[in-house]
Design a protein around this nucleic acid. Structure first.
Lengths: 150, 150
DNA sequence: GTAACTGCAAAATATTTGCATCCTT
DNA sequence: AAGGATGCAAATATTTTGCAGTTAC
């Protein structure tokens, strides 16, 4: 389960290509690099973070379009945040199975601002008032993360 | 003593004035009208909705500043949404007691896009991984609301 | 070769800031 | 009267769109 910390894995490229292929997307440099970034960091990223981390290698617009495509294909998903900034995250299930509904909890650190996908904590069932039908649940917890708490 | 020369709904005006006063804010037309709007609709509102509903009576900037002030004072709060649009809501507890933490569930209707504060449903306790400290929980459920479901 | 993707330019939209004027207290 | 609030202008930031050139397959 230490997948989050790993450096460069030879088969990672292959995996990324597979993800793209599986979703009928052509394998381009921007898509590969951006997906790679999500895998390497393991955390949620914003548009500007991606712009930074890729060293301005890609056009701002390309990043917008890439993220949009990934969201449409269910490769990544947006995370609702308390400050309403736009965050995207690649999650294991979504990544490997193309799921669209991510029913896990997200955690945002107030200190370092990192967002974690807590994949193994699923969202609880909520009993809604009469007449309301539930299709999706987003749960965001904020506080201090394990790195800042030491 | 409430003001002597008051129009339509003395009760509500007084209440709104009280809220402002309690928060050391001067009672101005924009603040009163915007607060009134939140009370009247009972739902979450976006900046543009407010602009619409107030009939362009106030400057765009004034609305931004009013909302920001209200958030700072804890009169309203932002709601994290799945599509990352910025929504604000006045909630009963926050309104009457000045609470800052709103631990209730929000519901967004996929059909009519209305956002409800489900004040009487509180957020569940989440067991976080070791090392994580929780300070706030935001839970947003989306689906079909009671109005659209009939 | 063709369809899809990218980069550039520019438009459209959203948000913030400075300042002079007006309003609340 | 004084300080805060508003409106206007403009700066800044964010996101979208059109199109021509390039790349993946």
């Amino acid at each position: 389960m230490p997948t989050a910390f790993l450096p460069i894995r030879p088969d990672m490229k292959a995996t990324i290509a597979e993800i793209l292929k599986r979703n009928q997307l052509s394998i381009t440099e921007s898509r590969t690099k951006i997906l790679e970034l999500f895998q390497d960091t393991g955390n949620a990223l914003s548009h500007s973070m991606i712009e930074q981390e890729t060293g301005k290698e890609f056009d701002r617009v390309t990043i917008y379009r890439t993220l949009q495509t990934f969201v449409e294909k269910g490769i990544i998903h947006t995370i609702p945040t308390a400050d309403n900034s736009v965050l995207y995250a690649l999650c294991k299930e979504a990544c490997t199975q193309g799921h669209h509904h991510d029913n896990h909890v997200h955690f945002i650190c107030d200190q370092c601002n990192t967002t974690y996908c807590l994949d193994n904590i699923s969202t609880p069932d909520i009993k809604l008032p009469k007449g309301f039908i539930q299709t999706q649940t987003d749960l965001v917890v904020s506080g201090i993360c394990k790195n800042c708490n030491s």
